[in-house]
Design a protein around this nucleic acid. Sequence first.
DNA 1: CTGAAAGCGCTTACAG
DNA 2: CTGAAAGCGCTTACAG
Lengths: 338, 338
Amino acid sequence: MKKKKRVTIKDVARESGLSIRTVSRVINDDPHVKLETRKTVKRTIAKLGFEVNAVARSLKQKKTNQIVVFIDQHQGMYWGSFHNEIVQELLRRSKREGYRLLISASSADSFAEDENDGFALVKHGLCDGAIMFDSKPDDKRVSYLKSQQVPFVIVGKDITNDDTPYVDLDNEYAGYLGAQTLYQNGYRKVAFLLGDESFVVNQERARGFQRYFEDQSCPTPIIRFGVSDMEQAYRMTNQLLTDVDLDSIFISGDERALGVYRAVQEQGLQVGSDIGILGIDNLKMGEYLYPPLTTIDQPKQAFGEIAFNTLLEQLKDPTVTAKRTLITPQVVERRSLK
Amino acid sequence: MKKKKRVTIKDVARESGLSIRTVSRVINDDPHVKLETRKTVKRTIAKLGFEVNAVARSLKQKKTNQIVVFIDQHQGMYWGSFHNEIVQELLRRSKREGYRLLISASSADSFAEDENDGFALVKHGLCDGAIMFDSKPDDKRVSYLKSQQVPFVIVGKDITNDDTPYVDLDNEYAGYLGAQTLYQNGYRKVAFLLGDESFVVNQERARGFQRYFEDQSCPTPIIRFGVSDMEQAYRMTNQLLTDVDLDSIFISGDERALGVYRAVQEQGLQVGSDIGILGIDNLKMGEYLYPPLTTIDQPKQAFGEIAFNTLLEQLKDPTVTAKRTLITPQVVERRSLK
DNA sequence: CTGAAAGCGCTTACAG
DNA sequence: CTGAAAGCGCTTACAG
């Protein structure tokens, strides 16, 4: 049993007694075709089970109708609920605008040599535009996209270039807001747990957090980087709880809050009444922690919507200037603060 | 500023004073090229920043070196940690075998008409093989793949056809094992919560569960379908806890266990000592619930490995017969049972 | 070891 | 309203 031969436009033309040109017109909904001819062609297409070969079409049109979302596999946590909820929105919008959305793994470090890194999709002309998650400072992929004038948008911040489009949370304010929320709820012995310090987002959040306490002329609170998953959140909380006198924990990332909750509860403490916990993200799961997590919202839908529109503008007109959007976060009050 | 013209093989040939044929040889590592010639070409390629156009290459070779993973967006829960961990493994292996892995959303219902559904990738010849998650009974995509002889593998079960390759957990045994685990731990008033009844996986799990109790000549325990997210798990648990006398809950899906935990704790009950909870999946997060969740493991890495190998065999030799693998689950004991 | 030429399956000015 | 022909950027028997 050998692979079935593909049905091509040529077969359809022969079978229906018309030229390739006419079949092509029907496929592409060109109005200049007699109704009767159109019907004949459509019938033949159905009969033969013909499907246009998108590869051939792209070669000629230099357009793929594909958009790629790049997601990096940083420290094991390949893809969280945060990415998930944004991708949902991207999917909805790209469908509406006639683009196919592909998701591909790509890393800022290995893309250059690695033919199987997802970034090959842009190098080899397999997409019209890109949406980049998890971009790092000095990301070579960003320079590449710029130099090749491939439309793209970063979800996150770009501190390396000043002419690249992005959408980001106002992370410095998120840190500030977190500090303020805790302080105004009467907490004074606060620890802030964040992921790797090399990520800009964490630097910004820490800075805003620190600034608030400086504004209150308070001593600098505890800040711990390198807490990038539940496991580390669990360990760090345990350690802090035994070593330091704490009344609250501000944890960057709702998923990691799970580790904090467990540590707190294992020490016989109550989240809320004994120790306040504040997250960032506002993921669905935060609502089902006990007690439900008070958190700083990242409006995922807005992220997706703005990212897509920013890309779409470039797709339609390559000369538009880079648009940068900063989203202002808000607190979602639930019950993990007293 | 208009889009930069792509550098083609022609440009490289002209610039290096050689034929296209020779440049093509160098690109494809054909040994029949004088070392010096090869060097010249490579230098020119670097100088011009040439990258092969994969679209043109695919058109000729009828091979894309791409594998697509299809994931369905069922009831809002587009992609869970379970998919995530399997995709990790698929990514590792495809990279090693020289394939690019793309992830795309596709639904069993809408693929036929919808040009932007991910399944267009196979209809239009944009991939060499497919890995299907979330396939449903009578999935038209499966028939299509079969009829077009596109290599594929299903992660899950196919009860419609008897000649399609898949990897699945022995779900009936998982249900049986869950019942047994609970029973042998002394639980008698059990409720089993599962997702939509239309999914084969849920039917099988329920069947195995029921069979165990029949074997013990016990009355049929409570089984509730339609519990497919944390929200519904929370509600159902709340309802059951007030309406029925229960000593344990068996919940299909660790993520949903979060909702069960919250309901139990809100009623002032202790997970473990008052109410036993048993999950299925063994996701990382289960370890960080308090108390840590006892669960039935789905070996994600094995899933990914077997799925990939099953596909790879077909990619290498289209005549191999469909291979089906059933993985036997085991219990991971933690502390949510007394 | 190297090259001229056909062809993959489409689209698209250009004619008629 | 329809068609013959060139061309997108590669690869690949076939020659030499």
